[in-house]
């Protein structure tokens, strides 16, 4: 019997080409990071960990890596703390101004990063905090928490509010019903939202570049200035480290919530 797939072989081939286009750069950068010598020749002449060692030996990269990890480690949990109650209010309550609040909370998502960067630069110049990790954390939290709100709102929409009623009916207070029944089921949303914010905070360039200087930089900003000044694969090594992190995160997502469920919360 002739199969009744929806797409023709030509379409499948086109899709495969597009997928190759998406994956190839990632593959090449890995090859480049392990390549012995400044230029990549195919096939590679030899493999080395030299560029990884180099990455960790450069003090500025070490400082930037540390700064980025600190920033993300603060921004991600802080965003979740802001987002969980907000998502509960948006999904579970009907109140005057709900649509407005919802739209305002989501508005940072449509503002170009450069504009957000300039805004927070203006604010920190005005307030007098100057440039540094604190303004970066504040700016990134304000910018990124809506990602977490979105994931949690999607998650909450999928939960049956009657489960909370069942818990109340069995003697749980409003708070206990949330803690024992709703919160455990928000795990996918917390994970998805937390990962989005974490990755956004580690990877953000357009806002951070306005709030960093020669003394305090984050990883993407440092990588950017390194690429301008040097022509060697040290940044490729950094890229491989970041990609490994995202592979680990995707495995984690798949184990804990499943890829399909994760996409519903995007």
């Amino acid at each position: 019997m002739k199969s009744l797939t929806s797409y023709s072989p030509a379409v499948a081939a086109l899709a495969a080409l597009v997928m190759a286009f998406i994956l190839l750069p990632v593959a090449f950068i890995a090859l480049y990071a392990f390549n012995d010598g400044g230029y990549l020749v195919l096939p590679p002449k030899g493999l080395t960990l030299h560029w990884f060692v180099n990455f960790f030996e450069i003090a500025r990269f070490r400082a930037a890596l540390q700064a980025s990890l600190v920033v993300s480690a603060v921004v991600a949990p802080l965003s979740l703390l802001i987002s969980v109650p907000a998502a509960v209010a948006i999904v579970r309550y009907r109140f005057p101004g709900r649509d407005l609040v919802n739209a305002l909370i989501m508005s940072p998502l449509v503002v170009p990063g450069v504009v957000i960067g300039i805004s927070f630069l203006s604010l920190s110049a005005r307030v007098g905090t100057g440039i540094g990790l604190l303004p970066i954390m504040v700016a990134l939290t304000c910018f990124a928490f809506p990602f977490a709100v979105r994931a949690l709102v999607a998650n909450l929409h999928g939960l049956d509010p009657r489960l909370e009623e069942a818990a109340r009916n069995l003697g749980a207070s409003r708070w206990k019903a949330f803690l024992f029944v709703t919160l455990p089921q928000l795990r996918p949303g917390l994970l998805a939202g937390g990962i989005f914010v974490f990755v956004e905070a580690i990877d953000n360039f357009s806002i951070a570049v306005f709030l960093t200087n020669s003394r305090t930089t984050t990883l993407p900003v440092e990588a950017f200035s390194y690429i301008r000044d040097f022509d060697d694969p040290t940044v490729a090594a950094m890229a491989v480290l970041l990609m490994s992190l995202s592979v680990v995160l995707v495995f984690l997502i798949d184990r804990l919530v499943g890829l399909d469920r994760f996409l519903d919360l995007k």
Partner: peptide
């Protein structure tokens, strides 16, 4: 998803 989470700097480079 891995590509998506790999970030902009990695991919621009």
């Amino acid at each position: 998803i891995v590509t998506f989470l790999s970030g902009g700097v990695t991919r621009a480079y």
